[in-house]
């Protein structure tokens, strides 16, 4: 623990191609400990792909990924497992296990990797469900019996239950009503402020971005083209960012049709 001030996650010149589709071209991104970073970017710009590369679910075509100063780009063994034990991930689609009940989903890591006993794990799951504004009554339902927004919140509970050091939220408030969305924003802030986690949040919701972010970065054409404090997002001086945050159809970013 000599380098406690170094970034918890670093992406260095990361490229990811699918055949001739060069999704990530040269991504450089540092995530500082205890900070909340929001990533903006058009649909299909590669935000989800970037998170999957960081987690080792996809191998980058080129470049390096460092977690806590250790290169995990190609590691398949203990180092990557140790990294994953410290990262929480909310998938854009939720990715709940549909053969397991809600509480078994939320407590999955406790039950499997940590071998916690079932009654204790269930208690923890119900506590965590409360944080995402879901009652104990949903604990024994299956994901298919929940609404889309409820599934998202269950997935969120699963991502935060072990209080990880780094949490990725892929569109946490999409599909939620404004009140629940704001409760989720508070929850993300709590992870950062009370628990000292670092968070990376992908969102299209500017209200949410302004509320949770310390810093905002924008991904465009496979590169991070702008990064700055959240307070500067409306006067970034960057035409691309301006167009994006004001949601204008005309400007340098051409809608792909």
């Amino acid at each position: 623990m000599t380098e406690t001030t170094s970034p918890i996650l670093q992406l260095k010149n990361v490229e990811k191609h699918f055949g001739s589709n060069r999704v990530l071209r040269d991504v450089n991104l540092d995530v500082e400990r205890g900070s909340s970073l929001v990533i903006l970017g058009g649909s299909g710009s590669g935000k989800s792909v970037m998170l999957k590369c960081a987690l080792g679910l996809m191998t980058p075509t080129a470049g390096q990924i460092l977690f806590d100063g250790v290169d995990v780009t190609h590691d398949q063994g203990k180092t990557r497992e140790a990294m994953r034990a410290r990262i929480g991930m909310l998938f854009q689609s939720g990715a709940l296990f549909d053969s397991l009940t809600v509480w078994q989903n939320v407590a999955f890591r406790l039950l499997n990797a940590q071998k916690m006993n079932r009654s204790r794990a269930k208690e923890r799951a119900i506590e965590t469900l409360k944080k995402v504004r879901l009652g104990a009554s949903v604990a024994d339902l299956y994901p298919a019996e929940l609404s889309g927004g409820m599934q998202k919140r269950v997935a969120l509970a699963r991502a935060i239950i072990t209080e990880p050091d780094l949490i990725f939220f892929d569109e946490p408030t999409t599909g939620l009503d404004p009140i629940t969305a704001d409760a989720i924003n508070d929850l993300i802030l709590e992870q950062v402020n009370a628990l000292g986690a670092a968070t990376v949040t992908i969102t299209h919701d500017m209200a949410s971005a302004r509320k949770v972010a310390n810093e905002i970065a924008m991904l465009f054409e496979g590169e991070i083209i702008w990064r700055g404090p959240a307070s500067q997002i409306y006067d970034s001086g960057n035409d691309y960012v301006d167009q994006f945050v004001h949601g204008r159809a005309d400007g340098p970013i051409q809608p792909a049709i």
Binding site: K52, L55, G56, L57, E81, R84, A85, I87, M89, F91, S93, A95, L96, F97, D98, F108, R109, N112, A113, R158
Partner: peptide
């Protein structure tokens, strides 16, 4: 295709 296999991996299973 619903990313459940990816989710398994991230949860150390």
């Amino acid at each position: 295709v619903t990313e459940q296999i990816d989710a398994l991996k991230t949860l150390s299973a």
